[in-house]
Design a protein around this nucleic acid. Structure first.
Lengths: 417, 417
DNA sequence: TTATTTAATCAAGTGTTTTAACAAAGTAAA
DNA sequence: TTTACTTTGTTAAAACACTTGATTAAATAA
């Protein structure tokens, strides 16, 4: 569940929040009776809770489900038209913005270039412009947005709504990102790390559905991990959990941008892969990559060549996979997650990487955790983080609705007549 | 808090459980008003909750605390005489049993040899004999025990009350440990991994008080870690989280008992340290250890010699520390804990190990998490796990009391006249 | 049509928490 | 000493959430 309550918070509407989350993430819909069993309440109690949620427009009754005997249960579902949210996924070089309904279905999407190094003022202005354009394209007013989930490629302190000592976001340190956007858009904002959101997205609607604990490995130009523990994002004590990219995999390895030697990222990140390819081409080795101008030689091109059967490119990818596998084996030994999901630009370019990762993990992990853990590719492709941001936004919107912090915007999306 | 409630459980008496945990682990006692603030309830509600807890004999009112202005608050404390529990810590070669009151104060303790390889039947008979003897020594009847916390050196599925595929517990796989002891002693039993319990013990009463997340590294003959996440034991999806001993720290390292190469345990565990010392002595190097018969040359002896200034011994210990530090740096990058606590037999033999661990971590960890994390030695010494087992036992006992599952055994420990 | 089964609801009662007023126990200043 | 002030803790009535136990609803099978 997303809505856990620690002992130091009040438990007002706790069961309403639980119920709506169970409904949201149920794979085949769920009835009042099933909810009652799962929540340890009586059916009578669920009748009242569900009535309230129905009146708020948060959920709706779908058609009944056929059962062998007795009265068929009424299946409850989230009401997609219960409200509208936005999701923003900022990468090092891209910006992905989406509008979504309460069922996390994306209504409109925009993919733009972005240079995170331009700093917060410039980038957030770009984000603002992008979102307003997207809203205009769909004839939606900003005031109809109930919440926005935002992802950034750096360590986030969620409570503070800012990043701290980010390695690749110069100028962003301690900039009040959330407060800034909140002021600009006038609705609740949730700020998270992009790998965290990837993990959440895959947990909610991707390859990690139903898992209690999972790790999402984002292999892009750098390498980061997002962790779901007890069905919740785990960000660590100071927001920098999941820094798998800077684990030492070889004491005597090359210098990394972080100042240490032999970091995973220096072996297997997109930048490292491109660098290796360039060196290979320069050495005069016979490869498909020779035809590509050096300045365009990216990890993506290496992946493409590998899929076309270029052996030297395959070797580079597989070597990267082996190093990632070593790091994941360590993660599996420490965390014992139910699933490890490989995502990010580099990972999505083919099965070769995943295969070699899987093999490396198999060779190095202890028996018990290895038996349980599934290593798979991200189901949501390049939208893992965007979906995670959507999930966070819907979280806020729905739970605000339950707490009556929001006017009820029922059927704002093309209401039936 | 120890008493979290996931969304799929009922929340009966939730606030009573929360309140008693806040009282138990408050460092300087806590008043009704403070509790109300921390729990998000009104003072009126707390009056009633506290009255109930007082009537159950779970807590008691201590003397008032002086404040600059206004009526002085009444400080609430756990009632040590609220009940009696036992704790059992089983190691590879030792068995530690204790009786404790509700304030986790140890009333009586027994330290016995044990060979875990003898299997469950024989070992549990030994545990049973030990506990009954300890009870007899203190004139306490078995029926007065309200709960027992048990720790074992293997991966535990707490819900099932058994270990799965333990590396060093032959014959124990899937043996119903908890059910067995429950039947023998007729009270609630909690079964956990020993490193988990070490982490819990240090979190509750040791070097990790007040931390949200921490890792406890147990450096004994092997190396294991216990994780506290969100103030709770995190055991992983299949109970085998924290297997730090089998993280690969050098691809080309020596063969480990687990079948892989270059595991941390093969470099820095107690057995590995002893092995290195033996090799060193055999090589004829000038060292204090030469005077010790080979069969008695343990990691403990190496530690002793190192403290006496024996350079070769110091080198072995520091090398072990460096490797442990490499693994911990990885853990810190992944987990971003608030504290890392080094415990276990080898760690307790001196500061040399901790110092070299600290340095290795400093060199390899990312800036942000490094700033936050404290690396310290276990405060509870060899009793970390035993204290953790006590905490678990008191947990069960107290929360059973609140749910009225237990008769109220008030003042069974030498009641005042 | 009737029996059976399972789902959902209703009405009365229980227990917990809030609201709002008040009592208690201290300090500080008149 | 009295009074004002501050903070803690209590009380009683009302609000609220949930349970209990009975009832209604909607399906299948005989």
């Amino acid at each position: 569940m997303l809505y856990w309550i620690p002992a130091n918070q009040n438990i007002k509407n706790f069961n309403k929040h639980s119920a709506v989350d169970l409904i949201r993430f149920a794979s085949n819909g769920v009835s009042r009776t099933e909810l009652a069993e799962q929540m340890g309440l009586t059916r009578a109690a669920l009748t009242m809770i569900v009535t309230d949620l129905l009146e708020n427009g948060v959920i709706l009754e779908a058609e009944s489900r056929a059962i062998p005997n007795g009265r068929p249960p009424v299946v409850l579902e989230i009401n997609p038209k219960g409200g509208l949210v936005a999701a923003v996924d900022m990468g090092a070089t891209h910006l992905n913005i989406a509008l979504a309904d309460f069922s996390a279905k994306i209504i409109g999407e925009k993919y733009l270039p972005l240079d995170i190094k331009q700093g917060p003022q410039s980038c957030l202005a770009e984000v603002n412009r992008g979102l307003r354009e997207l809203l205009a394209e769909h004839n939606i007013n900003l005031s109809q947005l109930m919440a926005v989930g935002v992802g950034v490629p750096g360590p986030v302190i969620t409570d503070a709504g800012m990043v701290v000592s980010p390695p690749i976001m110069p100028g962003w340190d301690s900039f009040p990102i959330r407060d800034n956007l909140q002021k600009e858009w006038g609705c609740s904002i949730s700020l998270n790390n992009d790998a965290e959101l990837g993990a959440l997205g895959e947990w909610a609607y991707g390859a990690g559905r139903g898992e209690q604990n999972l790790a999402f490995i984002k292999v892009g130009s750098g390498i980061g991990a997002g962790l779901i523990i007890n069905q919740q994002i785990y960000g660590g004590t100071t927001g920098s959990a999941g820094e798998i990219g800077h684990i030492t995999v070889d004491e005597n390895g090359p210098l990394c941008t972080c100042g240490n030697h032999g970091c995973l990222e220096a072996f297997a990140g997109g930048n490292a892969i491109a660098l290796q390819a360039k060196k290979m081409v320069a050495s005069g080795k016979r490869t498909l990559l020779s035809s590509i101008p050096t300045e365009n030689l990216t990890a993506q091109e290496v992946g493409k060549a590998a899929r076309r059967g270029d052996l030297p490119s395959q070797e580079i990818i597989m070597r990267a996979g082996t190093f990632i596998g070593i790091a994941i084996a360590g993660l599996v030994n420490l965390f014992n997650p139910g699933a490890v999901i490989i995502g990010g630009g580099v990972a999505l370019s083919g099965d070769l990487l995943t295969t070699s990762i899987r093999q490396a993990v198999r060779e190095r992990s202890l028996r018990a955790p290895k038996q349980g853990v599934h290593i798979t590719t991200a189901m949501l492709g390049r939208r893992s983080s965007l979906m995670g941001a959507t999930v966070q936004a819907v979280n806020i919107a729905i739970h605000d609705l339950i707490e009556k912090k929001h006017p009820v915007y029922r059927d704002i999306l093309a209401p039936e007549k």
